[in-house]
Design a protein around this nucleic acid. Sequence first.
DNA 1: ACGAGACTACCAACTAGTAGGTAGATTATG
DNA 2: CATAATCTACCTACTAGTTGGTAGTCTCGT
Lengths: 195, 195
Amino acid sequence: MNKPSNTADDILAAGRRFIVAGGYNGFSYADIAEVIGIRKASIHHHFPSKVDLVQTLVRRYLEDAVTGMAELERNVPEPPELLRTYAGFWARCIEDASRPFCVCAMLASELPALPPEVAVEVRAYFQFLSGWLTGVIERGAGQGALTISAAPRVEAEAFMATVHGAMLSARAYGDTAAFATIMTPTLQKLIPGIQ
Amino acid sequence: MNKPSNTADDILAAGRRFIVAGGYNGFSYADIAEVIGIRKASIHHHFPSKVDLVQTLVRRYLEDAVTGMAELERNVPEPPELLRTYAGFWARCIEDASRPFCVCAMLASELPALPPEVAVEVRAYFQFLSGWLTGVIERGAGQGALTISAAPRVEAEAFMATVHGAMLSARAYGDTAAFATIMTPTLQKLIPGIQ
DNA sequence: ACGAGACTACCAACTAGTAGGTAGATTATG
DNA sequence: CATAATCTACCTACTAGTTGGTAGTCTCGT
């Protein structure tokens, strides 16, 4: 069922690691060529330009998020647990250094300097994520399972902002546990009845 | 009282604008030379290397924050108003596009790819800011003027994370008002007795 | 006369991207 | 079945332009 080793996918995976570490201008075709063991020109065969490469990468990142969230909602139906699982997912990714930062959060920070084709994909990711969180929070508040003090959309934006800011702090301090430390009280304020 | 036009300061100011827009790798000596109207080589006279330039820039950014916060505390003594004024400062900076992002939040995002001399300065900024916020929140909670559900240090980290994440969202959406929209309920959760 | 601050003129290394070619697999056709 | 055409995936070798940085010179105010 799993596809054979594919160079294009290897390039995208390497590109993702580089973007997570240093952003759009933090890597070159030469860097990718070296880590996956092919020549620079061969990357151009798969992705004619750097814009193509990063555009494809971000588009696939969003697709993965869409299917990931759908599966998450199938496995974890309750809104409070959904938020906790989402935050826990990132806590693990950061702690085991497998995905120490969100690709789109990284790219969003340098949005004014990004090629417009990439910028539009990054914006789409933010819109999807905030839309998904709005739905979860709206449902949770309707059930009385979440305590909110503003409109679901606004609470969702605040939650998403805290997640991204917590990633940033964990990185700034070089302390992977900082993410969970920040998210715990944030979740507690939304979920009633736990101390 | 105000110093005469100083090229070194002009270089730092231009560098700051470029970093805010696109990070450490998002600008070159040539870019700075062009906007301030001197030759590339003349910048090396003031800052021998790019590391020197950015290190000086971030160090001064922290110094300005230290004196700025001290002055803020002299003018606005009450913790709730202090937090509101701090958030309001950034809201204005973002809305009038004068400082659409925090230099150190920007650099922190690409910390793993940063020269270590710069990284250490960025870390120092985060430590100062979280320390200052911890003090304000601790004092406010002691007076009963702020409602907190975790240790002051943790509340301060969460507040700072939300500020940085809200900047990121405002940038991602291209909507300067998003920052204030996110910060309003965040402040309301901390400040009792307002609806 | 001297130093600060600017200049011209370089440099090696790196950037994304191109040109042209090769080996091998796949597909179409007589 | 054979063979010709095409395609995929890579290669070497190159381009024009940019990167941070250096060396040496000119100019101007004190």
